[in-house]
Design a protein around this nucleic acid. Structure first.
Lengths: 165, 165
DNA sequence: TAAAAAATATGGATACTATTCGAAAAAACA
DNA sequence: TGTTTTTTCGAATAGTATCCATATTTTTTA
């Protein structure tokens, strides 16, 4: 059993950490120098902070967000799915197989009327039809409803709720 | 009126551009040197390519994706909303006001039974209740259904559908 | 509360990376 | 095919990251 230590490298983020995280949420390609200047700390301090944030696995990753309309995607859609049984096997199998499809951008596994929501990006309506019929429809899929997405907006500033001063 | 030019700086992405985009989708903090090495081009060529991709506005941005559970978020939910009238004013007002709330991570405006889906991140169930009742409920909101998210997964490799060679 | 220990911050030195620039190669056009 | 435009390259310079020894601050313990 682990000993409980205060202020070790696995807990507690302070205001400086929050500032660094916020800056990288807005622009993940900022240089260490730019971050240090913005936050008001030495460059060496800043790269040390970054190393610690990485060690704490605060970041899942850093990703480029592309303009889909310039990369051949003409239709984005949300597919709402209900499964027949909802056993762990069924759910895991579905989630796994959806995650392997390049058209699937986001997978939400929900606790409600709908079991899964899939945010997908396809070339055109033929691609949409083929994709849904050939890859999403499965014997254990009870129902499936596809809705066109008029507009999608993403807030990169995922909220940070810290309790310390 | 503009002259139509081929291979100008506003069209046509080739395989090299696609490779650069793919690498940055996976890791937006790669250095120019790393990208150049991976793609197999000179560093100067790579930074020139990047400048062009930026000029073409291929990238909406580069963002750090954080581990929500380590930043105080204990509940993520999807809120499905139907509006009463669906006039342009109503829709725009709703979208705008939702985009100002820190709890709202993604906004999907749909063409279907449901008008809006909101992916939200909150501290706990009290925060969820207060947030939904105080900020999402409006006089023109006809119905509203909140579903807990068991699991969310995001594929950073948004598809690229190129037609050239 | 004082001393010791631990953690964090700093700036300068060194190692590494990005950008600029002139020349060469490749591609597009007439 | 000859000309123009675009893209590529490598070397030089400008810029950035990391290491390290020292200083400071914070935390722990007696």
């Amino acid at each position: 059993m682990d000993t409980i230590r205060k202020n070790n490298s696995t807990n507690e983020l302070d205001k400086t950490d929050e500032q660094i995280i916020r800056l990288l949420q807005k622009n993940a390609r900022l240089s260490n120098k730019q971050i240090a200047a913005e936050v008001g700390i030495a460059e060496s301090t800043c790269s040390e902070r970054m190393r610690k944030l990485q060690r704490k696995k605060i970041f899942f990753g850093f990703h480029a967000i592309v303009d889909s309309s310039k990369l051949g995607t003409n239709i984005e859609a949300m597919v709402a799915i209900k499964l027949t049984k909802n056993t762990k096997d069924e759910v895991e199998d579905f989630k796994k197989s959806m995650s392997l499809l390049p058209e699937v951008v986001n997978i939400y596994h929900l606790a409600g009327q709908i079991d899964f929501l899939l945010y997908i990006a396809v070339r055109d309506k033929n691609h949409l039809r083929d994709f849904v019929m050939d890859y999403v429809t499965k014997d254990y899929v009870k129902s499936l409803e596809t809705s066109l997405i008029y507009d999608f907006s993403h807030n990169p500033l995922f909220p940070i709720y810290l309790d310390n001063e």
